[in-house]
Amino acid sequence: MTENPKKNGNIIHFDNVKKMYMENAIALDGVTLSIGKNEFVSIVGHSGAGKTTLLKMLLAEEKPTDGKVYFNTTDVHSLNRKNITYYRRKIGTVFQDFRLIPSKTAYENVAFAMEACGREDREIELDVPYVLDLVDLGNKIWNFPNELSGGEKQRLAIARAIVNQPEVLIADEPTGNLDPINTYEIAQILKKINNIGTTVILTTHNKGVIDSLNSRVVTMENGKIIRDNENGKYII
């Protein structure tokens, strides 16, 4: 395991990360990016700019062709399979297509994330209703995902992502399938999660969401970072 040579305040550091799928399909082209603790970073860019690939690198879903990804002091891709499992428990993830488990109720979807981390039954019984209340799903606790609206599904996905109190929350285009009202609600929930001390990384196409957050904006194009602004706006 190699150590992060960068400054201590950073929780995540991408060090000249490259990802090539084929000789002429470059997804990431030498990305260097540091994200500080409790920061809210939005990553914007056209489809195919490399946003999702960057998040996959952080989740160790894929390995970089070159370069390193650090989480605190840990080189993520030097971890073995078992340690990757433990590492992922420090990160909550929300996807555009929700990725809920269709055969489990709202309660069970959230409880599963806690069970996977080996939490006690008593803890689960206390925390799951609390988190579902927090995302305003207290009355849909025993509903299956197919009985929920798009906004409710995404709130459920957020509840699942935060129930283990992760250090980082990744939201990959979470409002892509939602109407403006639900989009606004999700943005507010993410802001709240950031305010209580969780680092949030958001990728989105939604100009309204970026402009309303008033936080750091990283713009990507063709696998490279072309702009990185504190309190940025949506400019492509």
Binding site: T85, R89, F112, C117
Partner: peptide, 14 residues
Amino acid sequence: EISVMKLVGAGNFY
């Protein structure tokens, strides 16, 4: 479902 389970940090055995 399996890929989601893995991404929320569930071990292979689980």
